[in-house]
Simulated assay, not measured.
Amino acid sequence: MQNLLDIHLNPDFLGAREHCLEKLRSSHIERLDSLVQRYPALISGTFFLRSTSRNGITFSYPDEQTGDKQVIAWSRISGDHEILCAMNLDQEKYACVYVTVDDVMHPVDSSMKCLFASDLSPAELNIEVRNGKAIRLTIPPHALVIYS
């Protein structure tokens, strides 16, 4: 299988493979394979790195020097469909962050549903008006989540 992160995070951006992806269990890899088959946009959609915020006001992109290094978030968009992926690189702490999503695609009071989580995560998240539009993710330590 063409790995999601070989496409999105090549080279290994902020150590994402080392901190999160290489620790996924084989059952997670099988579920991701199945997800790619059902949602080809995960591979072929247009890639957008997403800004994050701990307070819902000040948003920044992950950066080796200055930005938040705990969470990496990106979207793949195909047509009028967005799939949001996010990883918590911290080995011990939960990450609670707002992640920007496409402003036009997501009406106020809509939601995104969880397609995949490598650990316990909410099944559905509400769209909020922050930095355009955003959702508030709670991501377990070194976990990957995917919402649509």
Rank of each mutant, 00 (worst) to 15 (best):
D119I: 00
T100N: 04
V108T: 13
D6G: 12
C85G: 03
S118R: 08
H142F: 11
L32S: 06
C20D: 01
I7M: 12
F116K: 02
T46H: 14
K113L: 10
R136L: 11
F13I: 10
N131V: 00
E22P: 01
L4S: 07
T100D: 03
K93S: 11
A95G: 00
T138K: 13
S51T: 15
T138L: 08
L89C: 01
S51R: 14
L9Y: 08
K23I: 06
A16Y: 11
A86W: 00
I57C: 05
E124D: 09
R76C: 09
L115T: 02
L125S: 06
V104H: 15
I7G: 05
E64A: 13
M112F: 10
N55W: 05
M1H: 13
L21V: 14
L144T: 00
G45P: 10
V108Y: 08
R31N: 13
I72A: 08
K113W: 08
E30A: 14
H19E: 13
L115F: 03
D33Q: 14
V104D: 14
Y61L: 15
D33W: 10
V97I: 12
T138W: 06
L144E: 01
S26M: 10
L5G: 05
P122C: 09
Q65S: 07
R38Q: 07
V145K: 02
R130H: 12
C85H: 02
G79I: 10
R76W: 06
E30V: 14
N55P: 03
K133N: 11
S27E: 10
P122N: 11
L125T: 02
L32E: 08
L49T: 04
I43P: 03
L5H: 12
L144D: 01
F13D: 14
H8C: 13
M105H: 02
K113S: 12
T52H: 00
H19N: 14
D80C: 06
L89A: 04
L9S: 09
I43G: 04
N55K: 06
I127A: 04
L9G: 02
W74A: 09
D63V: 01
V104R: 15
L137I: 02
D12H: 10
Q2N: 11
K133D: 09
M105Q: 09
L35V: 04
S78G: 12
I77W: 12
V36P: 00
T58W: 08
L9W: 04
G15C: 07
C114P: 02
D102M: 06
L42Q: 05
I57H: 09
A73I: 01
L89N: 03
H106V: 06
E128G: 07
T66P: 00
V97M: 11
S110F: 06
E92Y: 12
V36H: 04
K69E: 08
R50H: 06
R136S: 06
